[in-house]
């Protein structure tokens, strides 16, 4: 099996984040059009332009173009930056557009814009030739962000409502036997805490990635709003290759005459 280099891992993250951005853009289009059609408007700032069908369409087009450019790796940093800018604008446009996956999209696209997201598997790389990225810190910021998300979402779930099973009971589209919800809720919290830490373990990373994929697949399949949750899964799981590329067996190779983990140069 070919080693997963840092650039290739980042390319997977880029494509995954961009695909999520496309779905989230569609979600925003629906939400903002509802507001334009007469639902309540709750802007953060009064001086922001009013939400009407024309301005929503313009923002939608910007979002789609940025997402597709990022998937293709065309002017990747600019595309990532434009996704981040559009996301900030939408978040500030109305309080009803806020969601954790929207915020995560903002963070990840901003980190991508700071790195070399088009160094591999991109139109940029076709034009300039494959370039192994020598910039490690945006990748590391992406990874720390993912850990932080898992950690705090687990922490927030340690409360009687969630651990009592009420949240899963109301969020799952298929009814399960009542005794299942409590252990399922406790298991979800334990798994998220485990993911937050174990993704950093070179020894456990393969098993942890497999568990993470199972967790997110389970969320997408069993909970309501599967498309939005699929976008969230793309944001989270799409970063796993960056953790995997750190593992010595997966992609280490000598760079500049010294042995360097692939995701870190």
């Amino acid at each position: 099996m070919a080693p997963l280099t840092g650039s290739n891992a980042l390319a997977v993250t880029r494509i995954s984040v961009a695909a999520a951005a496309l779905i989230i853009t569609l979600e925003n289009f629906v939400t903002l059009n509802q507001i334009a059609a007469g639902r309540i408007t709750i802007p953060f700032f009064g001086w922001f332009p009013p939400i009407d069908e024309r301005s929503v369409a313009v923002v939608f087009v910007f979002g789609v173009i940025g997402s597709i450019a990022l998937i293709a790796g065309f002017r990747s940093r600019t595309a990532a930056g434009s996704v981040a800018v559009v996301t900030v604008f939408i978040l500030l446009w109305d309080q009803q557009t806020y969601s954790s996956h929207q915020l995560l999209l903002l963070c990840l696209s901003a980190y991508l814009a700071m790195g070399r997201p088009g160094a591999s598997w991109s139109l940029d790389a076709k034009v300039r030739g494959h370039q192994e990225s020598h910039v490690s810190w945006p990748n590391t910021l992406i990874m720390t962000q993912i850990s932080v998300v898992y950690f705090f979402t687990a922490l927030a779930k340690i409360n009687p409502v969630f651990l009592g099973g009420d949240v899963l009971r109301s969020a799952m589209w298929m009814p399960l036997p009542d005794f299942v919800y409590v252990p399922l809720s406790i298991g979800a919290v334990a798994m998220e805490l485990f993911l937050a830490l174990a993704l950093w373990s070179r020894r456990l990373v393969r098993m942890t990635i497999a568990l993470g994929i199972v967790l997110h697949a389970g969320i997408v399949v069993t909970l309501d709003q599967p498309l939005v949750l699929f976008a969230f899964a793309l944001l989270m799981v799409g970063t796993y290759p960056l953790f995997y590329a750190r593992a010595p067996s997966s992609g280490t190779h000598p760079v500049h005459g010294r042995r360097t983990p692939a995701g870190l140069h």
Binding site: V149, T153, A171
Partner: peptide, 9 residues
């Protein structure tokens, strides 16, 4: 900004 999704809060 707290990553409190699906927490039931």
């Amino acid at each position: 900004l707290g990553w409190q999704m699906y927490s039931g809060l």
